[in-house]
Design a protein around this nucleic acid. Structure first.
Length: 232
DNA sequence: TGCCAGGCCCTCTTTAGGGCCTT
């Protein structure tokens, strides 16, 4: 199964377009239902962090003065997550900063970096949850304590545990529809856009389509092999 | 306390508006 990188940014504001810059990033690698590694770092961009955000995250302007340059951190992160599909809690937020910081670091976009969102998935799978804020979902599911909330590694780790819980629940809830198909990133990306009142049918449609696609690919491989052997 | 941005979802919708979630 493909490795999924769960990422989380701490930033100086709510959008890169409004002058916001990243102050910290973390990535947690998830594969085969397990957490397999992590990377995190503060990032020095020269941006001023407002007092409200200093208080929220615990990341001060003084701490960032000693941090490695953002460009270097993003280059390391590009290597760490190479070939991984991406997951984040409220993915549009992290995706925006990901693309902005990668561009500023001069890194080319990785086509594997398609984002799935645990907020959208949680809204479909856990309508009984009081809210879909990360902290509330962690409490709702009794997820392991990952440390101080609003720090990148702790939030990325909590999101990784939430992702594992989502994968387990989808596998259990739709076992008949999935047959032997894994709860991979492609299925999650499909489910996050599905009509939540028809999730079972959506899973069935996805698996049918993927198996047809897989069959067509196998048939093409067979045709190509037969053609090669025949000297066509 | 309320606003700031962006993307997405939901509904009393689609020629829109309000709410959620992220820092």
């Amino acid at each position: 199964m493909q490795t999924i990188a769960v990422i989380d940014f701490e930033t100086s504001g709510l959008a890169p377009g409004g002058g916001g810059r990243a102050t910290e990033i973390a990535a947690v690698l998830v594969r085969d239902g397990r957490i397999e590694g992590s990377f995190s770092s503060l990032m020095k961009t020269g941006v001023w962090v407002p007092p409200f955000i200093e208080q929220l995250t615990g990341i001060s302007n003084e701490m960032l003065e000693q941090a490695p340059a953002a460009e270097e951190v993003m280059r390391q992160m590009a290597v760490f997550t190479q070939g991984c599909a991406m997951v984040a809690h409220n993915a549009p937020f992290d995706r925006g900063f990901w693309h902005a910081e990668m561009a500023l670091a001069g890194c080319d976009p990785d086509p594997a970096h398609e984002f799935a969102c645990t907020v959208l998935l949680a809204r479909r799978l856990y309508p009984e949850a009081p809210s879909c804020k990360l902290g509330m979902l962690a409490q709702f599911h009794h997820l392991p304590d990952s440390g101080r909330a609003h720090r990148a590694l702790a939030d990325a780790m909590t999101t990784a545990h939430l992702l594992l819980r989502i994968q387990q629940d989808v596998a259990a809830q739709f076992a008949d529809e999935l047959e032997d198909w894994p709860v991979d990133h492609a299925l999650l990306a499909h489910l996050q856009r599905a009509n939540k009142s028809a999730l079972k049918r959506s899973v069935q449609d996805f698996v049918r389509k993927m198996k047809l696609s897989e069959g067509a690919t196998s048939a093409n491989r067979g045709f190509a092999r037969a053609s090669a052997e025949a000297g066509v």
